[in-house]
Write a protein that binds this DNA or RNA. Sequence first.
DNA 1: AATGAATGAGGCTTCATTCAT
DNA 2: CATGAATGAAGCCTCATTCAT
Lengths: 207, 207, 207, 207
Amino acid sequence: MKNTLPPRKRRKDARPAEIIAAALEEFEVRGFGRSTLAGIAKRAGISRTTIYLYFDTKEAIFEAAIRSSVERAIDDVAEIAGSAEGDFGTFFARAVDLIYDRLVEGKAAVFMKILVAEGQFMPDLVAFYRREILSKGEAAIGALIARGIKTGELPESCRSEDVRVFMAPAIFAALWLRVFDKVDPLDIEAFKQAHVRLVVDALRGRA
Amino acid sequence: MKNTLPPRKRRKDARPAEIIAAALEEFEVRGFGRSTLAGIAKRAGISRTTIYLYFDTKEAIFEAAIRSSVERAIDDVAEIAGSAEGDFGTFFARAVDLIYDRLVEGKAAVFMKILVAEGQFMPDLVAFYRREILSKGEAAIGALIARGIKTGELPESCRSEDVRVFMAPAIFAALWLRVFDKVDPLDIEAFKQAHVRLVVDALRGRA
Amino acid sequence: MKNTLPPRKRRKDARPAEIIAAALEEFEVRGFGRSTLAGIAKRAGISRTTIYLYFDTKEAIFEAAIRSSVERAIDDVAEIAGSAEGDFGTFFARAVDLIYDRLVEGKAAVFMKILVAEGQFMPDLVAFYRREILSKGEAAIGALIARGIKTGELPESCRSEDVRVFMAPAIFAALWLRVFDKVDPLDIEAFKQAHVRLVVDALRGRA
Amino acid sequence: MKNTLPPRKRRKDARPAEIIAAALEEFEVRGFGRSTLAGIAKRAGISRTTIYLYFDTKEAIFEAAIRSSVERAIDDVAEIAGSAEGDFGTFFARAVDLIYDRLVEGKAAVFMKILVAEGQFMPDLVAFYRREILSKGEAAIGALIARGIKTGELPESCRSEDVRVFMAPAIFAALWLRVFDKVDPLDIEAFKQAHVRLVVDALRGRA
DNA sequence: AATGAATGAGGCTTCATTCAT
DNA sequence: CATGAATGAAGCCTCATTCAT
């Protein structure tokens, strides 16, 4: 029943997503500043002006891209939080796995890169990204820690800690991969494990 | 009498540094891509074309800026390594202090930001920055760990760890400050201490 | 009804030719080096940037102009060679008539002038012009001479002569007209006849 | 006695000539339009601004260069005309030799090239060059013809001929050498002989 | 819905030329 | 006499964006 829509219509509905996908490719390869509408259009296989039927500016495309990735992120957080059993180390490792997956695979890292570079000119998007994406991650980590405290694995003092310090290596790794990896490769698996070990050892040690 | 040098001449010697300083301001405020020679010139109080007497391209200015910051970085490393006494925690805290100083104060973070944004188009500079700046930091941290192992404070197993994971929160903080701080301020002092605690606790705990 | 094509579309097809025509005007008046895209655009009644929809660089415009004049040149040669009857003098006079026509009327002389001035920086175009234009002329003259030898009007020895010497006065006249004519006018008709007489007398005299 | 001037003075007197020489090199290599004062200064081994002590503009340098070559040209003409004996063919061949020498060797051809390219913007120089250089050549050829008529070698009808047609191949050769020679070399010696033969045969044939 | 045509704003860079020593 | 420093004018080119079909 959903497939009975005329192809024209289906096409129309798909366009924004196609453009966003094309734009993300372009952003990844050329950075945001150097990306051109011409490049995005070419990747999307459409004309430059067609983009204006769906988006007002280049920034609007980026905004839409960022927004379109929110739902999944929310699901992710739910996924992390939903898991039922295990000790803190296991949970944390799983959360970190997920985060690295997103970051290494792509979109999230592209967003980070662009926000680092151009965030000052997109305060709304920065706020949005922080609120919808990063803070979910923080909340998730915070929840893990709270659970660890409840189960007695972690000391009460951990509660007041700025959780961003526990996520920092992941962001670092994401950016390093995109910038310095060619000149000094980072073994992402080993790094991830070091990251987990660092946090788990530190927090457990305080008990 | 020593000051009787003709101002024109003195000017000339000072110009490159002035231009670099102006460029760094501009880069910091507008990012590299959006920076214009006109903006740099205005900040430096000179004409657009005067810049070309000293630098061939915008990239060249950035390169000069990055290179001009190397000497200090090297001194810093010496400073860290030179200190004589204390336990691992004290040493590491001092090193982290220094790193945050550089990163918060300015230049280094500006470079990081630009390299994140445009590094793919400046492979030479990425390599240079990594070699001359980042690897010094890594080496310093590695030396601290080696010393901790020798004094028995840290277990032998620490030696094989990727030291970048110990520096990551500093880089993270530097970028966060420039990007998300307005929307979610980061208490740099508290974060720094959390960073130190994280690493020290984790490494000590392994002993 | 055939004329109901949208003007926008018709425009598009005509644009390159319009731009070329405008450019030739500009080149003729200002020379190639001093010609500006702004000037060409103004002559064509379009915006500066519109030119870039059709040509990549100023050189490309010149190249297109030169190429667009080739077909006619080829036809000319056919025309000369095709004529059926007459003695060598008649043939040669007709060929010279044609050459002077082209040269005096315009394009060809403009090209010559530009190539003289800037040819060292456009080796491909020099080669192209020589191959597609000048050598046709040489071939035509050579054919006339061969015919003259066959009919017995000219001695066999003429065959080995460098035919460029027979065309030289035409090139000279073309350039003189553009450079020295104001200060020392050249009666083109008289000169042309002198040219014909010179060559015909010389070649016949050898018989 | 002339050599007792202080070296500073000698230097000063020599400067204009040095600059002119450097400029001619530059003009020859890069053409007039693309030549820069910076390039000329470098060739002359002096500073860009020093040129302004002696010349007001780039055009002024060219003008001085052209004027400085006049004396020699005048001498040349005298040389041609002064020779005492021989028939018309011999005389003409000698004159042509001389002309080709000048044209092939350099300065004169550089002037021609520049005037062809930029003459429309230097009407005074065009007039000057025509008057001081070209017309000398024409006069010399005219004198040769007059002498030929007097000695009975040439018919009276030659007198009314536009002598430029007799010089044209030389100009042609000079330009061809600078423009098309790489793509289609011209054997200058053979061409020169063909030129002489053409003119001599034609004029003699009329007798 | 889609597009080809067109353009204005703005960036980098070159160069002749002036200024002050 | 000579020059290093500095600049304004001007050119080429890119790109986001609008217009008209």
